[in-house]
């Protein structure tokens, strides 16, 4: 069976060991994590964990079922129709063409996040595949450091 990419959204009780339960399950059962994002859900005692994973249909089904078995897990949403966004920060040397960098960031719905004495930081938030393209496009400007965030997603 061919591997499929899937975004899984997990609603959990906001307690200290819950992330290790989720990530340990992936590690112990040999499931793959491409990105992982966690943050509390406002005005509740719950958190949302968003994981991008890859696997065969059977593996993806097992991931959902095994996650459900964890006691502090309320809900597992595994949906094809998700709106996904990912963020990336890129640090460039100040002697690169600043106008070009700014134009590039804007082309990907981003901008300049910070400018210092010897560097400039661009920021882009977009769909994961567009982030990949953006990162590729930055290469000609000799990026010093690239920091990608994990995917966050919401059901359409």
């Amino acid at each position: 069976m061919a591997d499929v990419r899937r975004v899984i959204s997990i609603l959990v009780e906001n307690e200290s060991s819950v992330l290790s339960r989720v990530s340990g399950l992936f590690a112990g059962r040999g499931y793959n994590i491409e990105t992982l994002t966690v943050a509390p859900i406002p005005d509740t005692n719950r958190s949302r964990i968003t994981i991008v994973t890859k696997g065969s249909k059977r593996v993806l089904e097992q991931i959902t079922k095994q996650l459900h078995k964890l006691i502090p897990v309320y809900k597992v949403v595994e949906h094809e129709e998700m709106v996904e966004k990912e963020m990336v920060l890129v640090k460039f040397p100040i002697d690169e063409k600043l106008a070009d960098i700014q134009a590039l960031c804007q082309a990907y719905n981003g901008g300049i996040a910070n400018v210092g004495a010897d560097m400039i930081i661009g920021m882009v938030t977009d769909e994961p595949c567009r982030i990949k393209h953006f990162v590729e496009a930055t290469k000609r400007y000799n990026p010093i450091e690239i920091v990608r965030g994990g995917v966050v997603a919401i059901e359409r």
Partner: peptide, 16 residues
């Protein structure tokens, strides 16, 4: 103990 026993218990607690 909670870390070690996580994969071999149905659930576990550290009382805080």
């Amino acid at each position: 103990a909670v870390g070690i026993s996580r994969p071999c218990t149905k659930h576990n607690y550290l009382v805080r």
